[in-house]
């Protein structure tokens, strides 16, 4: 990854609702954080251990929810990945149960192959129930939120 790639990541980061983003691959490691006016990039540093993106340290593989089956309309995962309900580890979730969301609002982030994909509401609705836990693995079609259209 060269400077151009890193700048491209920063640009993408700026277009998302993410508050924080950490990246590490081989000897490249950087950390982006909003609101702090800091864009910190540590280029080719001392040879980092474990070049691979460590499949074994990833989020737990616990297969999806043991919650009661949703009864109403649900918003389902469009891809396979890991769900992040918050824009940053210490930030509040994008949506909570009982919240009204507008079409285009971010509901959560699903990370797949190091790409943060924002899931946005396709219609105005109320979040009745959140059906998955933060940082859990979701399959294609896993119900994420039970909603009521407005």
């Amino acid at each position: 990854m060269d400077t151009k790639d890193i700048l491209a990541v920063i640009e993408k980061f700026n277009q998302t609702a993410l508050a924080e983003f950490k990246y590490r691959e081989g000897s490249v490691e950087f950390h982006l954080k909003r609101h702090a006016d800091v864009v910190y990039a540590s280029g080719p540093a001392a040879p980092a251990p474990a070049a691979a993106p460590a499949p074994h340290s990833a989020a737990p593989a616990a297969p999806v929810p043991a919650l009661a089956a949703p009864v109403g309309e649900t918003i389902n995962s469009p891809i396979v990945g890991t769900i992040y309900r918050t824009p940053a580890p210490d930030a509040p979730p994008f949506v909570e149960e009982g919240k009204m969301v507008k079409k285009g609002d971010t509901l959560c982030i699903i990370e797949a192959m190091k790409v943060m994909n924002e899931l946005v509401a396709e219609f105005d609705c109320e979040i009745l129930r959140v059906l998955v836990d933060n940082q859990h693995f979701v399959e294609y079609g896993t119900p994420l939120f039970e909603v009521r259209r407005k």
Partner: peptide
Amino acid sequence: ESYLNVSNLISAALNSRAD
């Protein structure tokens, strides 16, 4: 969109801790 979907396949492999 499924058996040829590289991103979903690799995400599935990583998240299921496949070797």
